[in-house]
């Protein structure tokens, strides 16, 4: 009987081979399934094919489309030029009790925006950026307050914007207005809903506005 037991045990060579094989299979599964699902890293494309990317990380704002590189600034000393017009965005959010949301714009490195926001009561606020390459988020300003105005020159390409959290039971409304060289925004809420926003360009190439002072109609002072 002990001979039978000895005979049924695998040899050391087989065990080593089995371990090596298991490691190889584990590596394949790690790269094909675990990395896409957990970290949003999808080198083989299997994550998107199997739908594993859904819970991995934030959705990205709408693609730049025709804007693309036109939103990358060409820096000339103190000024920067862009290949397209800037965009403007005005949005209003309701925050329920202890609810939080993030609203972030996608900006190229060096791209600029200006903004003003106001809340109906003080909110926990974190103005921050998330590098497009998946690096750690960088907080610029963290405080509890009811308004903010300022400008940003993106220190890196990625998503830049705000985290706002209602610190109490009373619902809060936040209104944000911004203008800048971004091509899309992403709204993410604590109830796990995500919405993309596509702020409109101030004008598209062909239909630029009339210069000031040459608009049709009577001059402002004679308008009654």
């Amino acid at each position: 009987m002990s001979d039978d037991v000895t005979r049924s045990l695998p040899s050391v060579r087989r065990l080593v081979l089995a371990t090596a094989g298991a490691c190889a299979v584990a590596m394949v599964i790690l790269v094909a399934a675990v990395l896409p699902a957990e970290y949003g890293v999808d080198p083989l494309g299997t994550g998107s094919a199997l739908g594993l990317l859904r819970g991995a990380g934030p959705e990205t704002p709408p693609a730049a489309g025709a804007a693309g590189d036109a939103l990358v600034p060409l820096v000339r000393g103190p000024s920067a030029e862009y290949g397209s017009t800037h965009r403007t965005d005005t949005v209003e959010f309701d925050l329920g009790p202890y609810e939080y949301l993030e609203y972030k714009y996608r900006l190229a490195q060096g791209a600029a925006m200006v903004y003003s926001w106001q809340a109906s009561a003080a909110v926990m606020h974190d103005f921050h950026g998330a590098p497009g390459d998946g690096g750690p988020e960088v907080s610029i300003d963290k405080s509890t307050r009811a308004r903010g105005s300022g400008s940003l020159t993106a220190p890196f390409a990625g998503l830049h914007g705000w985290y706002w959290e209602n610190p109490g039971w009373t619902p809060i409304t936040i209104r944000l207005t911004s203008a800048g060289f971004y091509d899309g925004a992403l709204e993410s809420r604590s109830n796990r809903t995500q919405r993309t926003h596509a702020p409109a360009p101030v004008w598209s190439g062909a239909d630029s506005p009339e210069p000031v002072g040459r608009a049709s109609g009577p001059p402002a002072e004679s308008r009654e």
Binding site: A22, V25, A26, I29, L30, A33, V34, A37, E38, L50, G51, L52, R54, G55, Y98, E99, Y100, S190, N191, R192
Partner: peptide, 20 residues
Amino acid sequence: TVAVVFVLAASPVAAHDEFR
């Protein structure tokens, strides 16, 4: 067997989500 174990272990992380 190891492959099946890894596949079963990997599948739940796909739906890993944050709740408040």
